[in-house]
Amino acid sequence: MIIKRTELSWLERMYFPTLWSGLRVTARHFYDTLFRGGRVTMEYPEQRWTVPEGYRGAPYLVKDAEDRTKCVSCQLCEFVCPPKAIKITPPGPAVDPTTGNVEKRPREFEINMLRCIFCGFCQEVCPEEAIFLMKDYSLTGLSRKEMIYDKEKLLSLGGVHNDQIRKWKKKEAEAASQEAFKPE
């Protein structure tokens, strides 16, 4: 598309109106910043930003109200993670009686925060609401190793998620209330 240029008047071609309006705008800003507190800079370490709702910060794991790790090691987040930042070690075949009717929880869960791009796919894909992008945006460490967050760290940073559905607990209660017909 060719945009037709507007014909400039003689005065405009002398640049004077442009100079004048440029001077006006800059002078106004200068005055505002100096005397009327028009500064927009946030002086970071002292002034902190209020993280808005729905902000996508670092992904952390959560526990439910009964202190159960919500993650069941389905590895969908590992699969969906575009930069391959998530690495999950599944529990393996040994039956862990402490997991109850959930049967499964990750043996290890690592997120490489240096690789993470905070896209939120893991949260979106999680069928158990076990991983959430929280409000941490300033992640620092002194080594690459330190920036690989393990399960303990992710859980302690993630805290408790007050899930109202409580799928597994409900299932357990339902099963207990029914007469089970054991084959033997």
Binding site: C74, Q75, F79, P90, P91, G92, P93, E103
Partner: peptide, 12 residues
């Protein structure tokens, strides 16, 4: 399979 149980998701 008890051998393969919870060892890896098949899509990997």
């Amino acid at each position: 399979s008890k051998d393969f149980r919870f060892r890896m998701r098949v899509w990997f």
